[in-house]
């Protein structure tokens, strides 16, 4: 099949970018979206042109490195997947596909489709962890965790920090990301010691990085490749409220 791409090209963070259109031929439905881009890039290199820069690493939906805004949706038209898990069978012969980088003030474009997501790392370093004395590995189950709590904590821990929640949010809010971190640790016994400070510090870091406020539209939940629920944002709000007022 043949597809028509309209891709955001930008030489570096300081340059102005623009859309460039490409026609990609001999695309098969078994190709992943990235394999289609790889094929296009090969052709660009052979022609002596600059290949399209895009982030990718594991290509199996677990590392959180990739992320493209495809035809108006973060990670493309399907639910519950990362961009690397998107295949060309989701498109039809002759389709026009618009490919854009994540758009948010806190995620500046570095080159073409690659954005700088170190704002997430700075939020994590503000408290998205537990402090423990390192030593010998403790025996399993020395700290009992009820199964339902473990499951819910795991749902939150599934966050891979890809930034789709920010990318799709009309306010570029990072609430789902922060909620996943706070919720994950607030549900587990190991997270209790720093529980209050974590909620306060992560929200403060999120605001400082220039992410917007949550309007509860729920777009993040729909676009999250790990399908992290708004339930966690409710818990984050509760944690923040309790930590601030009590």
């Amino acid at each position: 099949m043949q597809v028509f791409l309209k891709v955001w090209r930008q030489a570096d963070a300081k340059s102005e970018g623009q859309f460039v259109t490409y026609t990609v031929e001999n695309v098969t439905e078994d190709m992943s979206f990235f394999e289609m881009l790889d094929m296009l890039n090969n052709q660009l290199v052979l022609k002596g042109e600059e290949p399209i820069a895009f982030d990718h690493d594991c290509r199996e939906g677990i590392c959180g490195t990739c992320g493209l805004f495809i035809n108006g949706r973060a990670h493309g038209p399907l639910r519950g997947i990362t961009t690397c898990q998107l295949h060309m069978r989701s498109f039809n012969d002759g389709d026009s596909i618009v490919v854009e980088p994540w758009r948010a003030e806190a995620f500046p474009v570095i080159k073409d489709l690659i954005v700088d997501r170190t704002a997430f790392d700075r939020i994590m370093s503000a408290g998205g962890y537990i402090s423990v004395n390192t030593g010998g590995v403790p025996d399993a189950n020395t700290i009992p965790v009820p199964k339902p709590k473990a499951d819910e904590a795991f749902d939150a821990a599934a966050c891979i920090g890809c930034g789709a929640c920010v990318a799709t949010c009309k306010n570029s809010s990072a609430m789902l990301f922060v909620a996943a971190k706070v919720s994950h640790l607030a549900l587990l016994p190991q997270g209790q010691v720093e529980r209050k400070q974590r909620a306060l510090n992560l929200i403060a870091a999120m605001d400082m990085e220039g992410f917007g406020a949550c309007t509860n539209t729920g777009a993040c939940e729909i676009e999250c490749p790990k399908e992290i629920s708004l339930v966690h944002i409710a818990r984050l709000n509760r944690e923040f409220l309790k930590a601030s007022l009590i």
Binding site: K6, W8, F19, F69, N71, G72, R73, P77, V98, E100, R103, A104, E105, A106, T168, C169, K170, N171, S172, S173, G210, F211, G212, A213, T215, N216, T217, G218, A219, I222, E223
Partner: peptide, 27 residues
């Protein structure tokens, strides 16, 4: 809040299918 949110999201997408992931009322 709106001013802050605008500042957080200054560049709009060329194509954004908000209808697919959020309600009209919320937007």
């Amino acid at each position: 809040l709106t001013l802050g949110n605008r500042k957080a999201n200054p560049v709009k997408y060329d194509v954004n299918r908000t209808r697919d992931n959020s309600s009209f009322f919320s937007r």
